[in-house]
C-alpha cells in the first residue's frame, strides 16, 4: 500500500447553474496516511460532502488532482472503486432487500463467487451485530441498524480506504457509540478511514488527524491536540487555564463566534 492513502492537490469543484457558477470546493490539498483515521470537519455547506464525492469517483473534478490508494481518481476511477468502501450521508440501501441479500449482492458485484459472497455476508453481519435481523427487509430496520448495515456493505471487499460521510448524523447516542466502535474495529484491521462529521466530539474521539474546511477551503489541519495547542498559544491563555476544546478550535477556524446565553445554552452565529 502507498504510504499516503489519499492525496489531493488543488481540488476544485464548480457547479454551473442558471444563476451562474458556484464554487463548492476552492482548492483543497489533503494528505492522509495509510492506516489513520482522518477527520474532515466543517459547517453545513462547507464542501465536505462534495470533496468526499470527488474522492470516491461520484463527482467529476473541475480542476486539481486526487489520488486514492495510489491511483489517480480521474484517470482510473474503476481501479479506485475496487480499493475503496463508501458509506455516504444517506445510508445507501435498497429497502426492499433483506440485509443479507444486500450484502451478498454488493460482494458479488465486487467479484466474489456466490459461496464467497454468502460467507462474507455472514462474517460482516456478525461484525455489525445484525445476524438476527439479516433476513428481514431493510425497510423495517432502525436508523442505527441501517447505518451499521451500510457500513458492512462498504466493507465487503476489504477496502484499503473507507469513506464515511457523516455516519452518525441523526443517530441516538447509543447507536452513535456503536458506530464509533465499528469504526475503531475497522481501523484496527488496517483500513484507512476518512470520516466527515459535524460532531466535534466524534472527531476528538476517533481521529488521529483532522482538517477543517470552510467555504470550500481547508482552514486548519493537524492532530486534535496540536490544533488545541496552537489555539492556546495564539490566544496566549494563562498556564492554569483549561485547554481549548475542539469546539473552540472549530469556531476559531471557521470565524463563527459562540456566545453563552442563559447559563449552558450555547448559540453559534455566523
Amino acid at each position: 500500500m502507498n504510504a499516503l492513502a489519499i492525496e489531493a492537490e488543488g481540488l476544485v469543484k464548480q457547479y454551473r447553474g442558471r444563476s451562474g457558477t458556484v464554487d463548492a470546493v476552492r482548492g483543497v490539498d489533503l494528505n492522509v496516511s495509510a492506516g489513520e483515521v482522518f477527520g474532515f470537519l466543517g459547517p453545513n455547506g462547507a464542501g465536505k460532502s462534495t470533496t468526499v464525492r470527488m474522492l470516491t469517483t461520484l463527482l467529476s473534478i473541475t480542476s486539481g488532482t486526487a489520488r486514492v490508494a495510489g491511483i489517480d481518481v480521474a484517470a482510473d476511477p474503476d481501479a479506485v472503486r475496487r480499493r475503496i468502501g463508501v458509506a455516504l450521508q444517506e445510508a445507501g440501501l435498497d429497502h426492499r432487500q433483506t440485509g443479507r441479500e444486500l450484502i451478498v449482492l454488493q460482494a458479488r458485484l465486487f467479484g466474489s463467487s456466490a459461496a464467497e459472497a454468502s460467507a462474507r455476508a455472514q462474517e460482516l453481519l456478525e461484525l455489525v451485530e445484525l445476524t438476527e435481523d439479516a433476513d428481514r427487509r431493510v425497510k423495517g430496520y432502525s436508523g442505527g441498524m441501517k447505518r451499521r448495515l451500510d457500513l458492512a456493505s462498504a466493507l465487503v471487499h476489504r477496502p484499503e480506504v473507507l469513506f464515511l460521510d457523516e455516519p452518525t448524523t441523526g443517530l441516538d447516542p447509543a447507536s452513535r457509540l456503536s458506530v464509533w466502535d465499528e469504526v475503531r474495529r475497522i481501523n484496527q484491521r488496517g483500513t484507512t478511514v476518512f470520516l466527515t462529521t459535524q460532531y466535534l466530539e466524534e472527531a476528538d474521539q476517533l481521529c488521529d488527524r483532522l482538517a477543517i474546511i470552510d467555504g470550500g477551503r481547508i482552514v486548519r489541519a493537524g492532530t486534535p491536540s496540536s490544533l488545541k495547542k496552537e489555539l492556546r498559544e495564539r490566544l496566549r491563555l494563562p498556564g492554569d487555564a483549561p485547554d481549548p476544546t475542539l469546539d473552540e478550535v472549530f469556531l476559531d477556524a471557521t470565524g463563527r463566534t459562540r456566545e453563552r446565553v442563559a447559563g449552558d445554552v450555547q448559540e453559534v452565529t455566523a
Binding site: L58, V86, L88, E90, G92, L93, Q106, L109, F110
Partner: peptide, 15 residues
C-alpha cells in the same frame, strides 16, 4: 434508488 442513495452506492462500486 437515486433519492435513497443506493444508486450512488452502486456507482461507487466497480460496476
Amino acid at each position: 434508488d437515486i433519492e435513497g442513495g443506493y444508486f450512488d452506492k452502486l456507482r461507487a462500486a466497480p460496476v
